[in-house]
């Protein structure tokens, strides 16, 4: 809170600089996150196809346990959620508190829908014997897709916290760096998901 008071005391110019610094710092965190996902994709690329007696991706696909439609719905929900969070940011830049809140609620609901579908899919895979401890392929699969899901969960919690702050404090200049950081995080997760559906799901279906 002392940050806020110094910011207002220093005036608009410093405030803008402060905002740029914290947003750039968060950007650098995202870049290191990008490298983490690079490592997880590398281990998945090496270990995929090593089933060691566990049900294979194709067997589950032919038995109808993995469905195209689930991946398509997940992709659609996350992409729509990215768009609606963009609208929340536009409302916030216009100083429109209720618009920001409305679009944030829509984004959070879409994000929760994504997470629900993913958890349902994971539970189903585990019930069919494709558990993380069954073989190298499913270990790498659950680590990669699960880490993305964990990021979405954290993003959702963060979004709920910011919704409470927007509702109580409005969308003044002190809220903008926080909302900007979350928007970067949320769009970044959608970008990681592009790689997940392309290289994990679609490639395994060939």
């Amino acid at each position: 809170m002392s940050e806020n008071s110094t910011m207002t005391a220093n005036g608009g110019h410093h405030e803008h600089e402060h905002e740029n610094h914290s947003v750039f710092g968060f950007w650098l965190y995202l870049m290191s996150d990008c490298v983490i996902f690079g490592c997880l994709f590398a281990s998945y690329a090496v270990l995929h196809g090593q089933f060691f007696g566990a049900p294979t991706f194709k067997e589950l696909l032919h038995a109808g346990d993995i469905e195209f439609s689930t991946v398509a719905y997940e992709t659609a929900l996350l992409l729509l959620s990215s768009l609606t969070f963009g609208f929340a940011m536009l409302s916030a830049h216009k100083g429109n508190r209720s618009g920001t809140l409305l679009w944030m609620v829509v984004s959070a609901v879409l994000g929760a829908g994504f997470l629900g579908l993913e958890i349902k899919e994971f539970m189903h895979l585990i019930s069919k014997g494709a558990t993380p401890e069954s073989c190298a392929h499913w270990s790498a699969f659950f680590t990669l897709v699960g880490t993305h899901g964990l990021h979405v969960t954290i993003g959702l919690i963060w979004m709920i916290v910011l919704m409470i702050q927007v509702a109580t404090k409005g969308v003044g200049s002190h809220m903008m760096p926080r909302l900007t950081c979350l928007s970067l995080f949320w769009h970044f997760l959608d970008i990681i998901w592009i790689c997940v559906f392309s290289f994990v799901y679609l490639l395994s279906m060939l």
Binding site: F24, L28, G38
Partner: peptide
């Protein structure tokens, strides 16, 4: 600085992926 850090981390991620493979 955003662009440079983005390109660098993408480069590192690609080196990790293709290097490992």
């Amino acid at each position: 600085s955003e662009v440079v850090s983005f390109l660098f981390s993408v480069f590192v991620a690609l080196v990790i992926c293709f290097g490992t493979l």
